[in-house]
Amino acid sequence: MAAGAVDALACMAHKGKSLPGIPQFSSCAEKRQWQLEHMAGAFRVFAREGYSEGISGHISVRDPERPDAFWINPLGVHFGLMRASDMICVTLDGDVIAGNTAGSINAAGFQIHSAVHRARPDVHAICHTHSVHGRAWSAFAKPLEMINQDVCYFYKAHSVYTDYGGIANEAFEGARIAKSLGDTNKAVILKNHGLLTVGQTVDEAAFLFCLLERSCKVQLLADSAGHEKHVVSDEEAAYNFKMASTPETLYVEFQPHYQYEEAMSNGSFKL
């Protein structure tokens, strides 16, 4: 783990008490199983948060052994029923190669996720759903303002896709979404569509999605109040981003959500 990441984690705890970082594994098989369990856990969290909308929405995780392949959820399974064994492994060219080969995947989901994975080798996980407040804010085709401490996790790290092209069943729409995300951003607001977040772990991407959705809700509430808004200064926003928006810290941020879901479901999503 990088020194800066260790410092950031230490700063988040009283008197610098150590916090658990991203685990390391001795084999690709162990890491793959861990990824699939956390992927399924993230879906359960999303279900509890109300992000399900019919057959829309997907999470993907790059395979630890094959960087040209990723795992994605099957079409037509509710987020709240998702299990590790349900996931399907598909190459960037669309060939199903492992996992739940009897299942099918969302065509639009494949176009979006394959394009982002292809364009961003640094990205290992992607989350996209049609959450309520994300869809509402997306209608304005505007970035979020830094109006509170938490939204600063996206300070100069989120973009807006302003060229809505309908359901992303064609490769060109996925490619345009990937391009709008940019080379380093953590998230993109998709006009008239929803939200998309990325991370080095599924935990990071999932926590960022939950935070982005709530940040859209906060922005809508603040805008509707009719009072003067006070925006966090660039200096303080940059400091907040540096301290709290590292991959390691964002991984840690998601663990209480994961642990709660694990307790509530007796870990059934790990099967």
Rank of each mutant, 00 (worst) to 15 (best):
M1L: 13
A5M: 15
D7E: 15
A8R: 09
L9C: 14
L9Y: 15
C11L: 14
M12V: 12
H14L: 10
K17Q: 10
S18F: 07
P20G: 08
I22A: 07
P23W: 08
Q24N: 14
S26P: 11
A29S: 13
L36W: 12
M39G: 12
M39Y: 14
F43W: 08
R44P: 07
F46T: 04
A47L: 09
A47I: 08
G50P: 05
Y51L: 07
I55Y: 15
G57N: 09
V61L: 12
D63M: 12
F70D: 01
L75A: 11
V77C: 08
R83H: 08
A84R: 01
D86C: 11
V90R: 00
I97V: 08
T101Y: 06
A102E: 09
S104D: 02
I112E: 01
S114T: 05
A115S: 03
D122W: 08
D122M: 04
V123T: 02
A125Q: 05
C127S: 04
C127K: 02
H128G: 05
H130P: 06
S131R: 03
S131I: 10
H133C: 14
G134A: 06
F140P: 00
F140Q: 00
P143Q: 02
M146T: 05
I147H: 09
Q149H: 06
D150T: 07
D150F: 07
K156F: 13
D163Y: 10
D163W: 09
Y164Q: 01
G166K: 01
E170A: 07
G174Q: 00
A175Y: 06
I177R: 00
A178L: 02
K179Q: 04
V188H: 03
V188W: 03
H193I: 03
L196E: 00
G199M: 04
G199T: 06
T201D: 11
D203L: 11
D203W: 11
A205D: 02
F207T: 01
L208V: 05
F209M: 05
F209A: 02
S215Y: 11
V218G: 10
Q219G: 12
L220S: 10
L221H: 11
A222H: 10
S224R: 03
H227D: 12
V231R: 05
D234P: 04
D234G: 04
E236D: 05
N240P: 01
F241C: 05
K242D: 12
S245L: 09
S245C: 08
T246F: 15
L250M: 07
V252A: 12
E253M: 12
E253L: 12
F254R: 05
E262A: 14
S265D: 06
N266R: 11
G267L: 14
S268V: 14
